[in-house]
Amino acid sequence: MDAFEKYYIPKLNASVVRHYVTELKFLITDCEFGDMRDSLIKDKIISGISDEKVKNELLNTDSLTCEKAISICKMAELIEI
């Protein structure tokens, strides 16, 4: 089962995550979400993660911030390498 998951579940890529976050921040600038901006970006990151282990870690982290979510994603990729 582990071999199956490693083959079919895509690995995280820090460059892709950074690009994704940068694109989200750019798109959200004109939306006037105010203080909710980072929270909405964090939620979009979580919903876009296909790795269930990383997604569960993000969802189970107390006081998860946008920056903390990005950090967890980067660490998950480093561990996989």
Results as ranks from 00 to 15, higher is better:
I70W: 00
K68E: 09
I41D: 00
D30H: 13
S71P: 04
C31T: 13
Y7D: 07
C31F: 07
T65D: 03
V17M: 14
S71C: 12
K11P: 01
I79S: 09
P10Q: 14
G34S: 10
K42G: 04
K6Y: 05
H19C: 06
V21T: 11
I72E: 06
K74R: 09
F33A: 05
T61G: 01
D38N: 14
A14G: 04
I81R: 02
T65G: 06
D51T: 10
M75E: 15
D51E: 13
F26N: 08
L64S: 04
C73T: 07
E52S: 11
S15F: 15
I49Y: 04
R37T: 14
R37M: 07
T29Y: 08
F26K: 02
K6G: 07
Y20K: 05
R18C: 07
E77R: 04
N13H: 07
E80F: 04
K74F: 13
I41P: 01
F33N: 07
M75W: 10
S39A: 10
E32G: 09
R18G: 03
Y20P: 01
G48I: 08
K6F: 09
E23P: 00
C73H: 05
D38A: 06
D2N: 09
E52Y: 05
M1N: 08
I41G: 00
N56V: 02
I70A: 06
E80V: 07
V54C: 06
